[in-house]
Simulated scan of single mutants.
Amino acid sequence: MGASEEKKEACGTVCLKYLLFTFNFLFWLAGVVVMAVGVWTLVEKSDYISLLSSKTYAASAYILVLAGAIVMVTGVLGCCATFKERRRLLQVYFGLLLCIFLLEILAGVLAYIYYQQLNEELKQNLRETMTQKYQQIPHEQITRAVDKLQQEFKCCGSNSSSDWADSVWIRSRGANSRIVPDSCCKTQTELCGRRDHPSNIYKVEGGCITKLEKFILDHLKIIGAVGVGIACVQIIGMVFTCCLYRSLKAEPY
């Protein structure tokens, strides 16, 4: 009976090892995905971050990048701990899983909170940012972001093209009699912003604020879903780790 029980226990440990190894490989791939989402948000869409007064959106992306990097390292550590059957390594591995779990839940919570307050922030700040900082010397990044926003989303002004009438730059000589920036034009050419007729510029109902809000909300959904989704998967890994830990004999000191 004793030999039979030991054999069953050994088989159970082997099964747990392979389950945990498979999990770690998939977990490592998930880390690559999490990191890629964070990096893509920060690099590809970094210009739009400069248009937001709050840093919550960027913070969520940075947390994903950090969590993704730790996940990749943890996946390798988990494989080593599994095959070497070292309880201490499994303890470290479990601790890292818990840290990543908390980081990704935090990213998801931040994304959700910012999701709720985004509309109000854009209403309060986007128009002022565009009219007061566009084409001003200390704010070159905002100028690039506004031009990219208007061209990419085919819009003009925060709420409408008439917002540009209050622009510091439009009122200056540097505007060369433009009524709106050239990036408002359907076909962008030098000084095309002198005509604000609907045949020449984008006249979108709701202006750029509705377009930017939809874009960021879509990205917040992705950030939140990735963070919370991977965190839920980690619960399985933590359960497997605990089971394997309990099945291994204590290491001699």
Rank of each mutant, 00 (worst) to 15 (best):
S4L: 06
K8M: 11
C15W: 06
F23W: 09
F25W: 15
G31T: 06
V33D: 14
T41D: 13
E44I: 08
I49P: 03
L51V: 02
K55G: 09
K55Y: 09
Y57K: 06
A59Y: 02
S60A: 10
L64T: 01
L66P: 01
G68C: 08
A69S: 13
T74I: 14
A81F: 13
T82K: 15
F83Q: 04
L90E: 04
L90D: 01
Y93G: 02
L97A: 01
L98H: 09
F101S: 15
E104L: 06
G108P: 02
A111T: 00
Y112R: 09
I113D: 03
Y115H: 12
Y115V: 10
Q117N: 10
L126A: 02
E128A: 11
Y134E: 07
Q135P: 03
E140D: 13
A145V: 03
D147V: 04
Q151L: 07
S158F: 05
N159S: 14
S161Q: 10
S162R: 11
W164R: 09
A165G: 09
A165S: 11
S167R: 04
V168F: 04
S172H: 03
G174T: 04
S177V: 13
S177W: 15
T187A: 15
T189N: 11
C192N: 06
D196H: 07
P198L: 12
N200C: 11
I201P: 00
Y202N: 11
Y202I: 07
V204Y: 07
E205D: 14
G206S: 05
G207F: 06
C208H: 06
T210C: 12
K211F: 08
K214C: 02
F215T: 09
F215C: 10
I216Y: 03
L217E: 05
K221E: 10
I222E: 03
I222D: 02
I223P: 00
G224S: 09
A231D: 06
A231V: 08
F240Y: 14
T241R: 01
C242Y: 04
C242V: 15
L244N: 01
L244A: 00
S247K: 03
S247F: 01
L248N: 06
